[in-house]
Design a protein around this nucleic acid. Sequence first.
DNA 1: GCCCTACATCAAC
DNA 2: GTTGATGTAGGGC
Length: 114
Amino acid sequence: MKHLIEKTDRDPTAFEMRVYDAVREVPPGRVTTYREVAERIGCGSSRAVGQALRRNPFAPEVPCHRVIRSDMTMGGFKGREMGAVITEKIKLLEYEGVRFREGKLSDSEQLFLY
DNA sequence: GCCCTACATCAAC
DNA sequence: GTTGATGTAGGGC
C-alpha cells in the first residue's frame, strides 16, 4: 500500500503538541470547541486544531470527542461527518454527564472555557 | 523562498 | 448550497 502520495505518520509538530495539551485539560463531563482550543494555544485558526486532532497520535489519551464546533455540533470525527462513530461518542459523553440532543450539545454551560 | 493543496472550521451570502 | 478567509503542514519547484 505504501507507494506514493502518502502522508502517513509524521512526528507531531510543536503546534500539534499544544493542541493535544490543551485538549487534555478538558475534564470529564466537559467539552470545548475548536475555537477555544485555537485561542488557548495562541492562534485564531480552528482548522489547524482540526488537522492536529485528526492525526491524533495520542488517541484515546487526547479525547477528540470532547472537542466540538462552535455550532455545538460534532462536525466530523475521524474523517466521518456522521454515522455510528458519532453516535457512539455521544453516548460516551452522555455517560460522563454531557448531554447531547440530536448531535448537538444540549447545554452550552458545559463548555470548558480556558 | 514561493505557490499550491488539504483540513475534523468559521463567517457571510 | 456557495465562496472567501483564517493558520498550519506537506509537497513541488
